[in-house]
Design a protein around this nucleic acid. Structure first.
Lengths: 346, 346
DNA sequence: CTGTTAGCGCATTCAT
DNA sequence: ATGAATGCGCTAACAG
């Protein structure tokens, strides 16, 4: 490894001068600069980023600490979210430091990475009730941004970016109602997740707007897996044969519902509607009639990073709590070329 | 931010003693240690990782530099690969530094991150012909591991982990042949990708093993997108109506093929077989008859990280070039409960 | 047991 | 235009 000191020795100048020459300062004679640059190039000099960061007290890196579990990486939506953040970071010349830790080591990881100055700020995802990570970040006064909000009655007194899934569910229900559906079931995430209440509220709002009654019997809680989507749908269809539509809270549960529907002898797109949420690229094509609510993945990453940057730079607060509208993607036909038309959110 | 120096002043001991007390060295008196630990806890002391890393000349971090483009994050397979690496890193107490750069800045990023000592080693993915990144890493003697191999005649004289997609394609073709298919088309990745030759070879081997003839007319090159899969399939089916099976080189092209088949009036699972490659969770359920070749994603991440670690620790070379067999996942029925049975690779 | 000295590599003062 | 001195925060060698 070549250091400034090495170049200083080879060139006969001091470390200081070498540093300034390479940094492009104007108070270095052209000849000196050329010589130094030539040596640096010849030696393949690369500044030690750690030393530089230590000195500068900034890393130009943002952190992301993920819940680890052996099959975590199969969650396409979450994966896409992470990559979306990574790509948004690019636009700000930032790198992304990822640390996947099992829940019990999660807080330690925050302390190590954030408290240890490895990153300038962090993005927190998948927050839980009374999330200790947020308490820590607030207490330590470390810059952070959250993807998602706290569930009421908890107050989200922190900067966040979230998808307005209430609006999404409402759009979806109204769409189904327009198609004539009156008995609509809903597959929800676990009650402990912050988003669950929002979705239920959106569902009810959609029913109300369409003049339909809310029937608690048609609500079921799953765990966001294909299996739970399948199981819940089997049960729902068995108990309530009048159901003509199943609204799933994510793609995986929707795929499970598709399978269950088939097993129950129902024909999706004909005598049963199944809708999803997330619209992950591949899953979106799972069924040509799978209408979905699509969060603006790319924008989420960009907003998260932009918000974090504005906080880091102490810029005007503007909007520190961003709610992004999802899009309703309707796939009406099994016919080849109907890719799905986008319906702008209200 | 609390530093060792702060604690030294508060406790009356020297920075060194504080450092050792907190590091758990035995040559510190119990009383001193307790006092120092108490202060550290009270102050919420967190060691500065940058200083520590600078000093220790190691970061316990591995790097991953990704090709950036505005819609890159929609590639579920690649996303899953990255996350698989991230989670494997956890087992070695490593963090993952991700930098997404457009192609023209890619090499710079390598210099900055690897040459700049921000990581102990890197994992290179999606290698191209005569990849300059690999040349750089070899020249600079930085530890690295590659996911994938060089395309012949180039020699892969570097540590790598790859999926034996030749075996995968061969399995797939033989499976189709057993089902009676004789006219099988193949949708390949772009000819510039290293994997393409392997897959073609596997395809031909499968045909040969089944006693079928190879027809170059039935081979087409796409770009791994849904659109290209659709377009190529439309063309193939129009020109060669006798085709009874389409083997796609990834899930997305397979999904495109499904759509094209539908448009052409063919019934997948009945008078046309379509098979995919990658078996990404959601996509795998795209069609109940979508048989796929599945790379062992989780194992790929683990092997990559393990291999990199062994190189970092100068451990016995063992196997520095790892070829992992994929699995054939057969989904035979549209019926509800046939999830797909796994067929061990040969 | 504890402190002094030294240095990781860099960039910034402040002199000259 | 250049260099010496200083410090970012940490740990290690060495001395006592």
């Amino acid at each position: 490894m070549t250091t400034l000191k090495d170049i200083a020795e080879k060139s006969g100048f001091s470390v200081t001068t070498v540093s300034r020459a390479l940094a492009g300062y104007s108070d270095v004679s052209p000849r000196t600069r050329q010589l130094i640059e030539a040596i640096a190039r010849a030696e393949g000099y690369q500044p030690n980023m750690l030393a530089r960061q230590l000195r500068a007290r900034r890393t130009d890196t943002i952190g992301l600490i993920l819940p680890a579990s052996h099959d975590r990486f199969t969650d396409d939506f979450f994966n896409a979210l992470v990559m979306s953040i990574g790509h948004a970071a690019t636009q700000y010349q930032l790198d992304l430091l990822i640390s996947a830790k099992p829940p019990e080591q999660e807080l330690d990881a925050y302390r190590r990475i954030v408290g240890g100055n490895r990153v300038d700020g962090v993005i927190v995802a998948r927050i839980r009730q009374h999330d200790p990570r947020i308490a820590y970040l607030k207490m330590a006064e470390h810059p952070f941004v959250v993807f998602g909000r706290a569930a009421p009655p908890e107050i989200s007194d922190f900067p966040y970016v979230d998808v307005d899934s209430r609006a999404g569910l409402q759009m979806m229900v109204q769409h189904l109602a327009r198609l004539g559906h009156q008995h609509i079931a809903l597959l929800l995430p676990p009650p402990t997740l912050a988003m669950t209440l929002e979705r239920l509220a959106g569902f009810e709002a959609g029913l109300a707007a369409a003049g339909l009654n809310f029937n608690p019997q048609w609500i079921a809680h799953g765990d966001l897996t294909i299996e739970s989507g399948e199981r819940l749908t089997v049960e729902l269809l068995a108990r309530h044969p009048s159901l003509s539509a199943i609204v799933a809270s994510n793609d995986l549960m929707a795929l499970g519902a598709l399978r269950a529907a088939h097993a129950a002898g129902r024909h999706v797109g004909v005598d049963l509607a199944v809708t999803g949420y997330d619209n992950i690229a591949a899953a979106a094509y799972a069924h040509p009639t799978l209408t979905t609510v699509a969060p603006p993945l790319q924008e989420i990453g960009q907003r998260l990073v932009a918000l974090l940057m504005s906080i880091l730079h102490h810029e005007a607060p503007e909007e520190r709590q961003v709610l992004l509208p999802p899009t309703l993607i309707i796939r009406e036909s099994c016919g080849g070329n109907t890719v799905g038309k986008e319906v702008a959110s209200p």
